[in-house]
Amino acid sequence: MDKQNSSLVQLLLEKIDHLDEAALVKKRVFNVTNLQMYTGWSLSKIYKLTSARLIPFSKPTNGSLFFEREKIEEWLLQNPSYGEAELEEKANAHLKRHHQGNP
C-alpha cells in the first residue's frame, strides 16, 4: 500500500471512531462493550466493579450486564475534586450564608 492510500485508510478509521463515539453518546443503555468504549476501562475492571457492586448496573438475565448511561455519568461525577479557586468560592459562599443566618 502506498503512502497516499495508507493516509486515506487512517483517515477513514479515525472517522469511523468518531462515528462510534457519537453513537455511544446517543445510547441510553450500554452493554459491557459499550461501557468499555465509553470509559476506556478494561473488561476486567468493569467486571470487578460490578462484582463488588460499586457501579450501577442491571442484570435482567443470568449473564448479560447493562448500564444506564445517565446513571454511569452520575456515578463517575459523584466525588468531584475542586481547584483552589472553586474551593475558595464555595467557602466564601458558605461563610456568607452562615453570617446571614442561613444554614
Rank of each mutant, 00 (worst) to 15 (best):
Lys59Asp: 03
Lys59Ser: 08
Lys59Val: 05
Lys59Gly: 09
Lys59Tyr: 00
Lys59Trp: 01
Pro60Arg: 04
Pro60Asp: 08
Pro60Cys: 05
Thr61Pro: 04
Gly63Val: 14
Ser64Val: 09
Ser64Asp: 06
Ser64Glu: 11
Leu65His: 07
Leu65Gly: 03
Leu65Tyr: 09
Leu65Asp: 02
Leu65Ala: 05
Phe66Met: 03
Phe67Pro: 08
Phe67Trp: 05
Glu68Arg: 11
Glu68Tyr: 05
Glu68Leu: 07
Arg69Gly: 02
Glu70Lys: 00
Glu70Pro: 04
Lys71Tyr: 01
Ile72Gly: 03
Ile72Pro: 10
Ile72Cys: 01
Glu73Lys: 00
Glu73Val: 01
Glu73Pro: 02
Glu73Asp: 09
Glu74His: 05
Glu74Pro: 02
Leu76Gly: 03
Leu76Tyr: 02
Leu76Phe: 01
Leu77His: 12
Leu77Trp: 08
Leu77Tyr: 09
Asn79Cys: 11
Pro80Ile: 00
Pro80Ala: 06
Tyr82Ala: 01
Tyr82Gln: 04
Gly83Ala: 10
Glu84His: 11
Glu84Ser: 12
Glu86Ala: 15
Leu87Tyr: 06
Leu87Ile: 15
Leu87Ala: 12
Leu87Thr: 13
Glu88Cys: 06
Glu88Thr: 10
Glu88Asn: 05
Glu88Arg: 04
Glu88Ile: 10
Glu89Gly: 11
Lys90His: 10
Lys90Phe: 14
Ala91His: 13
Asn92Cys: 15
Asn92Ser: 15
Ala93His: 07
His94Arg: 12
His94Gly: 06
His94Met: 13
His94Val: 12
Lys96Tyr: 08
Lys96Asn: 13
Arg97Leu: 09
His98Trp: 14
His98Gln: 14
His98Asp: 00
His99Glu: 11
Gln100Ser: 15
Gln100Lys: 09
Gly101Cys: 11
Asn102Leu: 13
Asn102Glu: 14
Asn102Asp: 13
Asn102Trp: 09
